[in-house]
Each structure stands twice: as structure tokens, then as C-alpha cells.
Design a protein around this nucleic acid. Structure first.
Lengths: 343, 343
DNA sequence: CTGTTAGCGCCTTCAT
DNA sequence: ATGAAGGCGCTAACAG
């Protein structure tokens, strides 16, 4: 592959002049020399080696993204928004899938070794260990960030999970539901805990049951949602024996799980919404095409993604900027998965 | 950040010895020196700078992936499989989303500039221009590859789109359908054309209509599928005026489009499968949770992804290996979107 | 067994 | 307006 020296030789100038032309500085170049250089660049189809440039200049124009999965439509839509914003600013996205925590740590290391300019962490389980590290590039987390000592060291973008979850539960209560189960998320990250907290808070607010027998943790997948449903609504569910009645509604922490919840309800012979009402969280496109369409709390996914990217790029430019926390809120999208409980 | 020189200084050895220890060669190192080096590495939390290593060694251990979208579940599942395989082999994935062809070209350039070890192209629209380039890293395409002169220069992985599409159409015919519409894909890539060809071939095989009035091209999105449905089944559809009857079934080129097809049918007051039967292509998880569940040709997405990654890694290791074309076939997954036409 | 050294390709200061 | 040269951090060939 042609190098800068080749171009310089053909143009009859020194390598420095080639850089001057291509980078628009820092020194002026005569029109003649410029023309010869550009011709040589054309002839060789020359492009600067980004590796060498990065080694020299200290910037890779690459951003790392650590994401739990791309199969979950919420994460997929988020990744799409982030990539779009980065593309616009001339940055490349390096992606690691962080199914499990060990993998997340390995990927984090790898990204730092590769000197990415910044990192976006989605639902990170190893943020604590990150913050302990000496030297990391700027980081933005898509999820709430809570530091032990209250001081924030990274920026974050997220919805108000507690309030938005409470709102979803309130919607169910408004239709007359009291015994409402909660399909919780799998990971020890704030977003998962907060959605349970929002459910519990809202149940407590009207004196409705909020015990652990009504909570089932599950993976953020359809299968996870199905399992949780069997645990909560199946014949020998603890929720049923404790309350001597089957929950009439479920608050589900993600659309991905809700797909499996619908499936499991069908298997159990329960009709949605006649026998069981469902409200889920995320508001992805996929929620519109289920049977029945899901009533779901729609997160502003595009905004979350573009904001995360923009915050990060700002931090890359000005490393000693104050970390920010940007909070959005969700909107209830009415599907057809909620009805009044059978009386 | 600590450099190799720092570690060497602390360990009281030369920088080369640090490399010998960390890289396991190429020269032996005494146990004592090794211990001191490792202690120093530990103390500094030192890791080699991957940028410098790449500049020197010629390998970035990074693979580029160009993908049309992550929101389409077929592409998302494919990306997931590819990332998994690359992670296993210690490679990082750099992703570019190639919504439009211009973007694809920019990304391709960028990946080459960054000296990725190889590139995976999904449904590429600019392969022709790639093949014209002088120096590219190894490339694997997920789609069929057709060179003008018949000689293949890159490897490919794909299903037999013509045969698998024909099979899907045959399934509809088996239920008694004759007037079958085709929702085609949007891009000038082999996979899109071949699915239409499979539909047409199978229609011709039984002397059923296969004219262009029965084909509607559309984006690989739900909205695309909906628009195509209006064009084919709406009140003033050309298909209807030509045949003086409404198509009783649709062959849909992707699950993503099929979601929108279902939606549009509901809007048009057409029941699925009573009024319109549907078979789609891809067989993603998402097809199981629609209303009704989709009957769809399931591509072996995991295998496609891991095979693409493995072929590429082979080519990276042995650049003058013969390009291969690996062909898989799809399986019909029975949902509930097909029934006999109303007589 | 260990140390020295020459680049990899680029950017940029300094000298001309 | 241009050229020469140092150095980013690393690997590996070469010399002790």
C-alpha cells in the first residue's frame, strides 16, 4: 500500500508537504505543489494510515460500545441511534456484546488497550471496577449511575425508571387491578432494581400487595419472560397460594420479555387481556406487532442514543468537563393488552 | 499511561525482555527476569498499546462489519452470531450501519484506512467497487456473490434464496392459492432479486400468474411491508384490476416486512389467514410473537454468522486461500398465517 | 540469556 | 514556502 513517502516522491516534495496539503496545515503550501501532491494522491489512491496517525496523534476516532445484546430490540434501536450520531461526527463504532459480566470486563480492557477515544456502556455491571481504574477514556453510561460516595465520575443518560414504572402500574390500577405481578430484569444494575421499586412504590401507594412472591426475575429475552410467567401464574405459583388468587395483571420490565409473557399466557390458557392484563417497558417497534399489541412505556430511544453519543463526544473534546446526568421520561403507548379484571 | 519502557526500567531489564515475557518469545527469558517483569507489569497495571503493536506488527485484531441495520431482527441476530465467533478468537468488531449506499462506501474506506484485518459485508450494494480496489483486506459477503466474469474474488455465505423462496410459494400453492403477491426487498443485491425469482419460478411452474403487477418492492422494515401491502391489496391495486380478483396470499421477503404486512391487513379489514395467507422469509425469533404467528422460511442465522466469521479468519491467516461459497438451506417454520383461500 | 537498534507511517516543530 | 528530523510505543532481527 502506498505511503506518504511514495506520494511525496512522485510529487517531488517532502513528506511534510503531503501532510500540509491533506490536513490543511499547519503550514501553507503553494498552489503548484498542492496540485502536484493531489495528483499523486489520486494516482496512488493514497489515504493516510489511520493506525500510524493514531499512534502519533493520540486519537483513534473510534468509540467503544458495550451492549448486552443486539437481539433485544431495545438495545438494537439504541445501538442504531448511537451509530448514526457517531457516523455524523466521523467516528467509528467498536462493539462488544456483554452477555455476561466476565465478557464485559474483557471487552472493556480490550477497548482501552486499543485506545478508543471514549466508551458507551449500556446497562453495565462492571462500572464499579471501571471507576476504580486509573486511566480510562471518557465514559457515558446508558442507565442511572450511583457512586458509593455520591460523587459522579461518568456521565449518564436514562429515563426515570421509578416514576415511569410507577406510572405503568398506576395505569393497571386505573383499570381496577390490585394483584399485579412484576416480571423483573436479570442484572444487578440500577434500571432493573428501579423498575421493581416503581412497581412496589405504586402498589404500596394504594395499599395493594407488593411482596416478593409477586416478583419474578428473568432474562431480558422472550424465554425469560415466559419462565417468569409460569412462575407467577402457573398452577403452583407461590403468588397464587399466598393470595389465594391469581394475579390479574403483570408489569413486565421489557418488551422482549413481554413477547414471551404473551406466549406463556397462551400456553397456560389465559387470554390477554381478558384474563391477564399486561403493561411492559421500552416501547420498541416490536411491541406494535404482537398479539395483542402491547401497552408499553415508550422510552425515547433515539434521544437516549444520540444524547449518549453527544455527551461522550463532548467529554472527548473537553476531558475535564463536569459529568452530567441527563434524564428523560417515558410515555405510555396504548396497545390492547390491558382490560378490566374479570370480576 | 505506563509504557513498556517504564516496566523495563522498574524491572531492571531492557524493553525487549518485557516483550519476550508478554509475548512468550521469540527468545527465552530467565525465571528471575520474568518474575521481575511480571511484578512490574502488575505494579503499573501495564498493557501493551494495541495501536503501536498494530503499526509494528501489521495486525489490528479488528474485523469490520457492514450491516444495513440492527433494528431488523434478521440482521441483529446475524451480528450477534458474528460477534460471538470473533470474541472467541480474540478479535474486536467494528460496525458500520449501511442504510444507504453512500454510507456504505464511506464506511468501507474508513475500515480499510483503519487497517482492519478483514471485513464482513452483509447485503452489500457496493461490492463491485470493492472488487475493483487494489488492496483490500480479506472480505466475506453474507449474500450470494456474482462476478461479472464468473470468477469469484471474495468468499460468501448464504442460503439458496431461489429454491427456498420457491419452497415457500409452493407451500402456499399446496393450500390452494394461485393468485399470490410478492413483497420484494429494496436493494439491488442478489438476495432480493433471487427471492422474487423463486416466487416467479414457482408460480410459472404451475401456470399461476407471475406478472409485475403482483410484485411490490419495499424497504426491509415494517413500514415498508405495510406500504407494499396497500399497493398489492388496497382498493385500487393494479394487481386487483388486472386479475379482477384480490390476491389470496402474499410471499414476503423478510420477517421485518411481514410485521407491517400484518398491520396493513388489519387496517384493510382483511383477516390473516382467513382472507389473506402469508409466508415470509428469515425465521427470526420475532416471527413467533406476531398475530398470528408467522409461517416463515427460517434461515440458519447462527450458522451463517459463525461461518462467515470463520471463513474470514481463515482468509486472514492464509490470504491466498481460494475463495469459497458456502450455501445453507432454509426450513419452513409453521405458524398460523396460512390457510386455504376463501372459495 | 539479554541488550541494542532499526524501523512501522505519520504529524509537527524547528530550521532553512 | 519547504525540508529535515524527532518521536509516538512496539516487535524482532541482530549483536553481544
Amino acid at each position: 500500500m502506498a505511503t506518504r513517502a511514495d506520494v511525496a516522491a512522485m510529487a517531488g516534495v517532502s513528506p511534510a508537504v503531503v501532510s500540509y496539503v491533506l490536513n490543511g496545515g499547519p503550514r501553507p503550501v503553494s498552489a503548484e505543489a498542492r496540485a502536484r501532491v493531489l495528483a499523486a494522491v489520486e494516482a496512488f489512491d493514497y489515504r493516510p494510515n489511520a493506525i500510524a496517525s493514531a499512534l502519533r496523534g493520540g486519537s483513534t476516532r473510534a468509540i467503544g460500545l458495550l451492549i448486552p445484546s443486539t437481539v433485544n430490540p431495545y438495545f438494537a434501536e439504541l445501538a442504531d441511534a448511537i451509530e448514526g450520531e457517531l457516523y455524523t461526527s466521523g467516528n467509528l463504532l467498536s462493539v462488544g456484546i456483554t452477555d455476561d459480566a466476565a465478557r464485559e470486563r474483557v471487552h472493556l480492557r480490550s477497548l482501552i488497550d486499543r485506545r478508543v477515544d471514549g466508551i458507551i456502556l449500556i446497562s453495565s455491571r462492571s462500572l464499579a471496577s471501571v471507576e476504580r481504574r486509573r486511566e480510562t477514556p471518557p465514559i457515558v453510561v446508558v442507565d442511572r449511575v450511583e457512586s458509593a460516595d455520591g460523587s459522579r465520575t461518568v456521565s449518564s443518560v436514562h429515563v426515570d425508571n421509578v416514576a415511569d414504572s410507577a406510572y405503568a402500574v398506576e395505569h393497571l390500577q386505573g383499570w381496577g387491578h390490585r394483584l399485579i405481578g412484576c416480571v423483573a430484569g436479570p442484572w444487578p444494575v440500577p434500571a432493573c432494581g428501579e423498575r421493581v421499586r416503581g412497581w412496589r412504590q405504586q402498589q404500596d401507594a394504594i395499599g395493594a400487595p407488593s411482596g416478593d412472591e409477586l416478583v419474578a426475575h428473568a432474562e431480558f429475552t422472550a424465554d425469560g419472560g415466559a419462565e417468569a410467567t409460569y412462575a407467577l401464574l402457573g398452577a403452583d405459583a407461590r403468588a397464587i397460594s399466598v393470595h389465594d388468587a391469581r394475579p390479574t395483571a403483570l408489569f413486565v420490565s421489557s418488551d422482549a420479555q413481554a413477547h414471551g409473557v404473551l406466549h406463556a399466557c397462551a400456553v397456560l390458557g389465559l387470554r390477554v387481556p381478558e384474563d391477564v392484563s399486561i403493561v411492559s417497558f421500552d416501547g420498541t417497534q416490536s411491541a406494535r406487532f404482537t398479539n395483542p399489541p402491547l401497552t408499553t412505556m415508550r422510552q425515547p430511544i433515539q434521544s437516549l442514543g444520540t444524547t449518549a453519543a453527544r455527551l461522550l463526544l463532548e467529554a472527548v473534546q473537553q476531558p475535564d468537563l463536569e459529568p452530567k446526568a441527563v434524564v428523560f421520561h417515558s410515555n405510555l403507548v396504548l396497545g390492547a393488552s390491558v382490560a378490566a379484571p374479570a370480576s
